[in-house]
Each structure stands twice: as C-alpha cells, then as structure tokens.
C-alpha cells in the first residue's frame, strides 16, 4: 500500500513559489540579456535585473543564450598546427579531424575548442586612439587579447606535450560554406581547398575608410553589395599573401 500524500501547507507552498519564481527568472534572464545586447550594451532594465541572478545562473551553468545556429549558420573555424622537429621536418595537422578524434562526441569537443578560440579572438591592440577615446573599452580590449593569447598558448603547450621536443606553431583557419547559387551551378566538395582561408592576426586600424564608404552607399542604392565585399576580400588576401611571403612569420605571429 502506498503512503498517503500530505498536502503542502500554505507556508510551504508560498516559500516554494518564491524559490520557483526566482529560479525561473534565473533561467529566462540570461538569454534575454543576450538578445537585448546591442552596440550600446545590454538594455539597462534587463541588465539591472539580471545582475541579481547572475551569480546563481553562472553557478548552475544556466547562463546560456541558446542561440544555436543563429542569427545565421556560419563558416566553421579550425586550428591548424605546424609541428617541426629538430631536423626541420614539418608536420601539419588540422583540428578537428574526424579521422583522428573518435567517437563523434570526442570529435565534437575538439571542434568546440577550435570554435572557442575564434569566439574569444581579439585582434592585437588596442589602437592608441582608443585609449584616449574610451579608456574602459581599451582596458577591456587588453583583457580580451590576453585571454585569447593565454588560450592559444595553452593549445600550443598541449601540442608540445603531445609532440615532445618539437616546435609548435598554430593558426586559425576559416572553413567557408559554398554560396548556394554557385554550388548549384558548379558543385564542389565541401573540403575543396578554395573553401579554407587562413585567418590573420592583424591589428585593427581605427581610420575613416573613405574608399569603402561610397561602395556601401552604392550597395544600398543599387544592390551591389558584392563589390565592396569582394574588394575587402581581395585586400585581405593581398595582406595575407604579403605576410605569407615571409612564410613562417604569419604562423609564428599567431604562435608567439
């Protein structure tokens, strides 16, 4: 025979209701705070409310944004490592690699690690002008850059442990998704070389880009968005090639 259920007293129900409401707020506010973030920061009303629940949310790991594949599914970010032994023999490996990391869960964790390096990436800097314009932002930049460098260095140290006595350099690589219209006309393998793009670790220059401005205006007027994007891509590639000319410089620039 099962035990009879004692109904909860009013006081218990009241107490439990308070706790439940508090917990639900701690569940709702993190993604709300994430979505109400803009160029001016998080909406002050949400930020003030979330401040009360943030420690609890963070402790329980419920401080997530749930923005899966959002706002748009984008390219993936990989880590390429160059491992050189004392004879100068060079081994290049890319992470994640589903032929090496197995089962899929292990592969996916490696994939998340390479995406994490992209997520926390902060270019070298800050530009000297920023320190005068916004010292707090400049300080944030320094912290974010230090975090990126620390994690990148940790990846290098892990690989050095895996390959003792060898020199390790790493760089980030972006794996692009083929454009749908191009793919329909000329299907290519998703692993085609043209879809991999090394990501440069270059400082950001805070300068008014007069050359690009008309292109943006044109884009809104004539729908020629592709032109400015193409020019930017060509400029990136030119910058990349000039750094590549000194070969390992680009890689060691990341690895330092």
């Amino acid at each position: 025979m099962m035990a009879p259920i004692k109904p909860l007293s009013r006081r218990t129900r009241l107490l439990l209701s308070g706790l439940l409401l508090g917990h639900l707020l701690a569940v709702v506010l993190p993604p709300l705070s994430f979505q109400t973030r803009g160029p001016l920061g998080t909406s002050p009303s949400i930020a003030s409310l979330f401040a009360w629940f943030e420690p609890y949310s963070q402790c329980l790991y419920i401080d997530r944004g749930y923005a899966f594949f959002a706002p748009n599914p984008g390219p993936s970010h990989l880590v390429q490592a160059a491992i050189t032994d004392s004879y100068g023999e060079r081994l290049e490996i890319m992470f994640p690699d589903r032929t090496v990391q197995w089962p899929r869960l292990s592969y996916h964790r490696h994939f998340m690690l390479t995406e994490f390096l992209e997520e926390i990436y902060q270019p070298p800097g800050p530009p000297p002008e920023l320190n005068e314009l916004d010292p707090a932002e400049s300080q944030y930049w320094l912290g974010a850059r230090a975090r990126y460098e620390r994690i990148r260095q940790s990846y290098i140290e892990h690989l050095r442990h895996m390959y003792p006595g060898r020199q390790v350099e790493v760089r980030r690589v972006e794996h692009l998704i083929p454009e749908i219209l191009e793919f329909q006309q000329r299907p290519i393998e998703l692993t085609d070389d043209s879809l991999y793009r090394p990501m440069l670790d270059l400082p950001v220059v805070l300068e008014f880009d007069a050359e690009n401005l008309p292109a943006v205006e044109d884009a809104s007027a004539n729908g020629r968005v592709g032109e400015s994007a193409e020019r930017k891509f060509q400029a990136d590639m030119q910058a990349f090639r000039s750094v590549q000319a000194s070969d390992s410089e680009s890689v060691s620039g990341e690895a330092r």
Partner: peptide
C-alpha cells in the same frame, strides 16, 4: 525558454 530564445535568435538572421 530554450526554444523561444533559440527561435528569436534565429529570427534575427536573414537566412532563417
């Protein structure tokens, strides 16, 4: 909550 904010986050993207 997960699905609502997952959906709202997607709704900010053109591709969705």
């Amino acid at each position: 909550v997960i699905y609502l904010f997952g959906g709202l986050a997607k709704a900010r993207g053109q591709s969705w």
